[in-house]
Each structure stands twice: as C-alpha cells, then as structure tokens.
C-alpha cells in the first residue's frame, strides 16, 4: 500500500495544487471527525490528506453587509458560542449543536458535515432552508454553489477533483424571518437522525407567511425540499399545518433500517415539519 502523506498548506492555490496534482486519492480534511473514523476503519483509503485549517479564511465567522460568512472548517462549537450568528440563525445552530458530543463539536465543521454527504447530516437541512451558498475553489478558479446542489447521492458530491469548499455565505436575516431545526432520534444525545427538518420562514407585519423553505434530512438519499407553497399566505393555522404535514410526507423516499421503518420515518417527517414550522413562526413573529 502506498504511504499516506499529509500536508497543511497555507493558501488556497497551494491546497488546490496539491489536490489536483495528487496521483492517488486525495482527501480534504477539516475537523476529521468523519474522515479519521473512515481512515481507521479502512472505508477511506486516501494517499494524501490535505488539512485546510491553516488557510486564512477557513476558520472563523464574519458579519458582512450581505449576511454572514462562515469559514468552511470552522468547528461547530464556535458557531454556538457566537452570539450574533446564533441569534441570526438559531435553526442552523440547533443543527450543528446536535452533531455528536461536545468533543466532536470542537472539531466538526459545516463543510465536513455537508461533504461527507450523509442523508442524516444535521447541519444540512437548515443550511439549505437558509439559502446558504458554498464558495467552491479549485483548479478552474472560484464558483458559488447553492448548498442544495453540493450533495448528489449518499457519499457523493458535485465537487470536481481538486475542488473544495472555502466558505459559506448565509444571506442577511431581515425583518420577520427566522429558522428552526428539529431531529428525531431514539435517545436524547449522540445518535444519527431518523428524521431531521429545517424550516426558514419570513412573515409580513401582520404575521402572514410571505416565504417558506422546509427541508428534510434522513428520509431520502439526499436532503429533500418540501413543497411549502401551501403555507405561504397563511398564518400557520391548523389547515396550513395539515397541508404542510401532507407535503412533508409526500417528499419522503426513505429507507427501512433499525432506526425506523419507511412508514415511521414518513409519519415523523410530517410531525417534525409542523413542529419546526411552529418554532420558526414564533421566532419570526417575535422579531
């Protein structure tokens, strides 16, 4: 077996050069909480690990005129400690706060959670619901890709050889807009989502929903968007909630496994969509 090598380049061009020029499989590493588990179990067999955490901009949180910029390798603990980002996107932070333990959150990043491409990744539904955009860098330069278009199948992404995510852009939260994330697991900590649901709602001054984004995790090969048009124009009354429940169930295409049957996951998807929508609605109304 060829020897595993490691590099911690200090710039994007250096990292791209290493990744694009690698002979065998090269893997980007952020927090390593997925990659190193897979390395140890033999599921991942890279010949090169490129640690991006020394590249300026890969770690950290900044507020700009347009919203928030999150370095792709920023550990989730830093997100929950950041008062400004947590207030703007409580739902995204609810997702990252559920990733593993305190120790895992000390390393686990948004880019790793997304690019590991698990259907159950906890930060992804709320990121998609937020309309977050990934800034992808690579041999042909830089491009902006909606987070919803990164994962293509379990374990697969749309990134080409040599490409990696440099940072995420979250739009500015304005007016009565807020998000929420809920997941169902059989216990209260340290388990993989049976269903996850991220919701992002915008209301007008009278409390009528003007925009809604609802995204489910763990009920299909990738995260799926729910058709939420039925709640737009409503004040999230019982009829709107029932319509949302139906739409969420219709979006499901789940697997049967020890954590939940197809039937159970589908039902829970409807329940979580309703509950997360109510939380997001109350948060938005309070703004």
């Amino acid at each position: 077996m060829p020897r595993l090598s490691y590099a911690a380049p200090a710039s994007v061009p250096d990292a791209v050069k290493l990744l694009a020029g690698a002979q065998g499989l090269a893997k980007v590493m952020s927090g390593g909480t997925d990659l190193l588990v897979q390395l140890r179990s033999g599921r991942a067999k890279p010949e090169l690990i490129v640690d991006t955490k020394k590249i300026p901009g890969m770690m950290g949180i900044r507020e700009t005129a347009d919203g928030w910029v999150i370095g792709a390798a920023t550990p989730s603990a830093e997100l929950s400690e950041h008062a400004g980002f947590s207030a703007a996107y409580p739902g995204v932070v609810e997702g990252t706060n559920l990733i593993g333990s305190t120790q895992v959150q000390g390393r686990a990043s948004l880019a790793g959670n997304l690019c590991n491409a698990s259907p159950a990744a906890d930060s992804v539904p709320a990121m998609i619901a937020a309309g977050a955009v990934a800034v992808v860098v690579g041999p042909t330069g830089q491009r902006s890709v909606p987070v919803a278009q990164i994962v293509t199948a379990p374990g697969r992404t749309s990134l080409a050889k040599g490409e990696f995510i440099f940072e995420f852009h979250f739009p500015k939260v304005s007016g009565k807009q807020a998000d929420a994330y809920l997941r169902f697991i059989p216990r209260t900590e340290m388990d993989i989502a049976v269903v996850g649901c991220g919701v992002n709602l915008t209301l007008d001054a009278a409390g009528v929903i003007t925009a809604a984004s609802v995204v489910l995790g763990a009920v299909a090969p990738t995260q799926v968007a729910v058709d939420a048009t039925s709640i737009v124009g409503s004040k999230l009354d019982d009829a709107a909630l029932a319509a949302l429940d139906t739409a969420a169930r219709a979006a499901c295409n789940p697997i049967n496994d020890k954590r939940g049957t197809i039937e159970f996951r589908t039902k829970v998807a409807g329940v979580l969509a309703r509950r997360a929508a109510k939380i997001a609605y109350d948060r938005a109304g309070a703004r």
């Binding site: 390593g32 190193l36 588990v37 690990i49 640690d51 550990p75 603990a77 120790q103 000390g106 390393r107």
Partner: peptide, 13 residues
C-alpha cells in the same frame, strides 16, 4: 483550549 477527542486528531496536527 478546545475540548476534543484525541483519537480523532492526527499526531501531525
């Protein structure tokens, strides 16, 4: 200063 699992950190890091 940040709490982590040392089994999920590479020595080279």
């Amino acid at each position: 200063g940040r709490l982590v699992c040392s089994c999920l950190v590479l020595g080279v890091e």
